[in-house]
């Protein structure tokens, strides 16, 4: 193995171990754990046997293995953006609900015994 292959395998193995640890602690979902394990596992295999990416690429009608990896990377990045965006939307929504509740409570606290309660039925 070349030095770079050794580094790659070492790093990917650490990621795989971290994934297992996180999944066992329940920090990430089971599905996400399996998915990450599959990705890192495939990474390790391809690091050791780079030619296999070319073989798979040919099966899919892509001429080079590096192209296959590039396409997969693009898809993964897009997926990542989407997930982050959805998460951000949810957080923004929760923030709005929180800010709203605080605003109403603060106003009601200030208004207790004060003006405005005449309209309450």
């Amino acid at each position: 193995m070349t030095p770079f292959q050794i580094i790659l395998v070492a790093v990917l193995s650490l990621v795989a171990l971290a994934t297992v640890a996180l999944a066992m602690r329940g920090s990430i979902g089971r599905l996400a754990g399996v998915g990450w394990l599959a990705v890192t596992g495939a990474g390790i295999v391809f690091a050791i046997r780079p030619n296999w990416t070319t073989d798979i690429a040919h099966l899919l009608g892509i001429s080079r293995g590096t192209d296959l990896l590039l396409y997969l990377l693009v898809l993964a990045v897009l997926q990542g953006f989407l997930l982050i965006y959805l998460k951000l939307r949810r957080v923004r929504r929760e923030l709005t609900l929180l800010v709203r509740e605080l605003a109403i409570r603060e106003a009601e606290r200030r208004g207790d015994g004060g003006a405005g309660d005449t309209e309450r039925r």
Binding site: L95, T96, V99, R100, L102, A103, I104, E106, A107, E108, R110, G111, G114, A115, G116
Partner: peptide, 23 residues
């Protein structure tokens, strides 16, 4: 007005209208 509400952080006009409506 006695009915003064404040968003601690800016949430946009739609959010502000809904807050006033809830109140």
């Amino acid at each position: 007005t006695p009915h003064a509400l404040r968003h601690m952080v800016n949430r946009g006009q739609g959010a502000a209208i809904q807050t006033g409506t809830d109140y």
